[in-house]
Design a binder for these strands. Structure first.
Length: 267
DNA sequence: ATCAGCACCTGTTGGC
DNA sequence: TGCCAACAGGTGCTGA
C-alpha cells in the first residue's frame, strides 16, 4: 500500500541486495499481474540485475541488457527477497536467481502490475514530475497548477501531473501547508502554493527517513514496518483532536477517496 | 477538462 | 458469536 516514501524504501532495500544477481527464470502465478503491454518476461532468463531505483510509485529494475522491469504495487503488492524454496502467501510473480534466492512479488488483491520495457521507462509510463526533483521549483509548480479547477487534493493524486503522491501524503502535506483540500488548484495564493510545495517535500522526506508509513500492514523489502504512521497529523484521525488546535479532525470524500483535514487550521 | 461511478480483487473491521 | 456491509494507502475506463 505504498506511496512515494514506501516505494523509495523498498527500492533502496532491493538496491542493497539485488545488483549482480543473474536471473535463472521467472514464474508467473497470476497471469494478469504481467501488464498486457509488457515484453515477454520469460526473456529475462540469463539477464542480470544492474540496479534498482524508483520512478514515481514504480520500482524500476534496470537489467544488464539495458531493459527495465517496472513494478507497481498498487494497494497490496509486496516485494521481498527470499530463499528459492520459500513461497510467501499471495505469491503472484517470482524471479529466481542463480544464487538460490528469488525476488517474490506477493499481492493479495491482485491489483499490482509488472512490465518489462526496452528504452527509457520515463518516456513510457505517462507520469509527471517527481515532487522531490530539483527541477520542480515554485515557477514550474505554479505553471502546472495554473487555471486548474480541480480540488487541490484531487490534483495532488493525479500521477500525470506529479508522480508519487498518494492519499496519505496528500492529506498530510495540505495539513502542514494549512490549505483546504477542496481549494481549487489554480486558486491557491502565491504564499499557499509556496507552503504547499515545501510541505509536500518536507512530509515526503521525513517519511522516507522513517522508512515509510505502516498504516495497515506495509513492510519493506526486508520485512520491516515503517515508522511514519505515528507522526501522521490527519490521515486516519477523523474525530480525534488536531495536534495543533484540538479541533476534531474531519473526514470528507473527494473523488471517492477519504480526505482528512482540520477545519480550523486549514483555510 | 473534469467528475462520478464502476471495475479490478481480497481481507479486515465495525455495526447490528 | 456471526453475518454483512463498508472500507482500504491505486489506477483506468466509460459516459456525462
Amino acid at each position: 500500500v505504498p506511496e512515494l516514501p514506501e516505494v523509495e524504501t523498498i527500492a533502496r532495500g532491493l538496491q542493497r541486495v539485488l545488483p549482480g544477481k543473474r536471473i535463472e527464470r521467472v514464474e508467473i502465478l497470476w497471469h494478469r499481474t504481467v501488464d498486457a503491454r509488457s515484453l515477454a518476461v520469460a526473456s529475462m532468463a540469463g539477464d542480470a540485475v544492474r540496479s534498482v531505483g524508483r520512478i514515481g510509485k514504480f520500482v524500476a529494475m534496470t537489467l544488464a541488457s539495458g531493459r527495465t522491469l517496472v513494478i507497481h504495487l498498487r494497494m497490496t503488492g509486496r516485494l521481498t527477497v527470499v530463499d528459492n524454496r520459500v513461497e510467501p502467501p499471495y505469491l503472484r510473480f517470482a524471479m529466481r536467481f542463480t544464487d538460490g534466492t528469488k525476488l517474490a512479488f506477493s499481492d493479495a488483491r491482485k491489483f499490482g502490475r509488472i512490465r518489462l520495457l526496452a528504452g527509457r521507462p520515463e518516456d513510457q509510463l505517462g507520469i509527471g514530475i517527481d515532487p522531490l526533483s530539483p527541477r520542480l521549483d515554485d515557477r514550474v509548480f505554479a505553471s502546472l497548477l495554473a487555471r486548474r479547477t480541480t480540488p487541490i487534493k484531487v490534483w495532488l493524486l493525479d500521477q500525470r501531473k506529479l508522480a508519487g503522491v498518494g492519499n496519505i501524503y496528500a492529506c498530510e502535506a495540505l495539513y502542514r501547508a494549512r490549505v483546504r483540500p477542496r481549494t481549487r488548484a489554480g486558486r491557491l495564493t502565491k504564499a499557499a502554493r509556496r507552503r504547499l510545495l515545501r510541505s509536500l517535500r518536507a512530509v515526503l522526506q521525513r517519511a522516507i527517513a522513517r522508512r515509510g508509513s505502516s498504516v495497515d500492514d506495509y513492510v519493506d523489502a526486508e520485512g520491516l514496518k515503517g515508522g511514519f504512521q505515528n507522526l501522521l497529523a490527519v490521515y486516519g484521525r477523523a474525530g480525534q483532536p488536531c495536534r495543533r488546535c484540538r479541533t476534531p479532525i474531519k473526514r470528507i470524500e473527494l473523488a471517492q477517496r477519504g480526505t482528512f483535514f482540520c477545519p480550523a487550521c486549514q483555510r
